[in-house]
Computed example of a mutant assay.
Amino acid sequence: MSIIGSSLKPFKAEAYKEGKFVTVTEADVAGKWAIFFFYPADFTFVCPTELEDLADNYAEFQKLGVEIYSVSTDTHFSHKAWHDSSPAIGKISYTMLGDPSGQITNNFGVMREGVGLADRGTFLVDPEGVIQFTEVTAEGIGRNATELLRKVKAAQYVAAHPGEVCPAKWEEGEKTLAPSLDLVGKI
């Protein structure tokens, strides 16, 4: 069953954000665009490169009204220790959700069965709490924040312009398509 078009499930988690421990629930996400960015574990190899890339681009996501929630099955305590000890992770000002129970990871369907770690999953949730985008990669394949920004812009464009769709490699300001009978077979 596809998770696209499904609603964000209820959750409650402790998180580390900007030097503080905070509690986050699905109610905190309501009414905003949000990215849930799952990764296997703190203190690893590919994960800090991805999280640093998001940190370096966080201001651009914020300009689009998008909040980022990184999620692993580590605790919020582990997130703080990692933040305090890693120059790459020390750049992060977005919310780092701890999910030791696996509730959120299971809600999104990215828990590695029998392992207790999340796959590399990226999910875009719209302000109504509906999942609009998902991407899951194998452990050794890192993600790209710039490409994620492009996809967020496309999702926001489509949401604001019913009846239009964004073609492959669409960039903000480029032509879109208006699906119709007249367009069938002409692309």
Score class of each variant (00 low, 15 high):
149 L>I: 11
81 A>Q: 09
127 P>M: 10
5 G>M: 06
91 K>V: 04
71 V>A: 06
100 P>L: 13
90 G>L: 12
6 S>I: 00
80 K>V: 06
93 S>E: 13
129 G>C: 06
40 P>V: 13
123 F>D: 04
172 E>Q: 15
125 V>I: 15
2 S>W: 07
69 Y>E: 05
136 V>F: 01
80 K>C: 03
128 E>Y: 01
147 E>Y: 00
102 G>R: 12
49 T>Y: 09
180 S>C: 05
45 F>T: 12
43 F>K: 05
2 S>H: 10
79 H>V: 07
30 A>Q: 15
81 A>G: 14
38 F>R: 01
19 G>I: 14
34 A>I: 04
66 V>K: 02
146 T>K: 15
161 H>G: 04
74 D>C: 09
96 M>N: 08
128 E>D: 13
84 D>M: 12
34 A>N: 01
154 A>H: 08
10 P>I: 08
162 P>D: 08
133 F>V: 04
158 V>D: 01
23 T>Q: 13
114 G>W: 08
154 A>S: 14
84 D>W: 11
153 K>P: 00
86 S>I: 09
33 W>Y: 14
87 P>A: 15
133 F>G: 01
73 T>R: 10
169 K>F: 12
62 Q>L: 15
85 S>Q: 13
158 V>T: 10
108 F>D: 07
15 A>C: 10
15 A>H: 02
135 E>V: 06
149 L>P: 00
133 F>E: 04
151 K>V: 15
59 A>D: 14
113 E>P: 02
69 Y>I: 00
162 P>E: 14
6 S>T: 14
54 L>T: 01
113 E>G: 06
107 N>K: 07
149 L>E: 03
28 D>H: 12
145 A>L: 04
30 A>T: 09
115 V>L: 11
48 P>G: 10
167 P>A: 15
59 A>M: 09
180 S>W: 09
165 V>H: 05
131 I>D: 05
57 N>M: 03
24 V>Q: 08
77 F>N: 03
155 A>T: 07
